[in-house]
Amino acid sequence: MFTIFGVPSAALFGQLLLGLINGSFYAILSLGLAVIFGLLNIINFAHGAQYMMGAFVAWMLLNYAGIGYWPALLLAPLLVGAFGVVLERVMISRLYKFDHLYGLLLTFGLALIIQGLFRNQYGVSGLPYGIPAELRGGQALGFMFLPNYRAWVVVASLVVCLVTWFVIEKTKLGAYLRAATENPTLVQAFGVNVPLMITLTYGFGVALAGFAGVLAAPIYSVNPNMGADLIIVVFAVVVIGGMGSILGSILTGFALGLVEGLTKVFYPEASATVIFVIMVLVLLVKPAGLFGRAT
């Protein structure tokens, strides 16, 4: 055991790990927002509610159907994503010809409905969701104790983020997607089914949120309000990073999680606001965001 700047190493690295975990969620959620924004030009305010749904679907699968964590990690995002597809087809697609702000207002209303329904059904006290047997326990690293599940969360989100980046930047499908982001009319003229692509993109972004929800379920209690405050922080993350770059969103998410963790060690009073303060500084110095293009 040693100390760094008067802080015991275990406390410092423990908070850094927590920060990294928060950062994982920031990264996945801001990535989903960026993917959706790129093609649909709307900010998905329901993203926090859909993240919460992911956690709840995992909980329901376990408690009502006896389906455990690993299948849920695949099933819950699929179900939440399918829900997103329906939302896009039935409601969001009607608003593309109007100002983009209406999309924000619509998804805000949807978030209220989803949260309200879950609150009526399950209350606000939160439901427990156990860590899967394979990932219980942890490793003693000497300078800190590393719980296996938390390490898994960081690795899993990194992998999902990098795969998403790879698909969008390096594959043919991703090329279509990027082309449709730049000029949907032209891409459609080439025979690509752009409306279908838009629907699936929204579904994919929502599924990412659902995936984050499943990852979060064993760490935080499964609670109808778990996404509401998180999503506002993620908005700040998105403003800081700018939504123009996929890799930028991922990097900003993880980095801000770490900064938040460090703040908890050295100046805990500011830990809830540090990301907003950074947002203000970025707005002053580089209004377009760290990785954004001027709009």
């Binding site: 409601m91 009607r94 608003l95 209406y102 207002l105 619509l106 805000f108 209303g109 949807l110 978030a111 209220l112 409905i113 989803i114 949260q115 309200g116 329904l117 609150r119 009526n120």
Partner: peptide
């Protein structure tokens, strides 16, 4: 009605926007 207010407000939001 507790949290139903939230649901009703959400429904009004969605209806107005759509």
């Amino acid at each position: 009605l507790g949290a139903w207010v939230l649901v009703v407000q959400g429904i009004i939001f969605v209806t107005c926007v759509l």
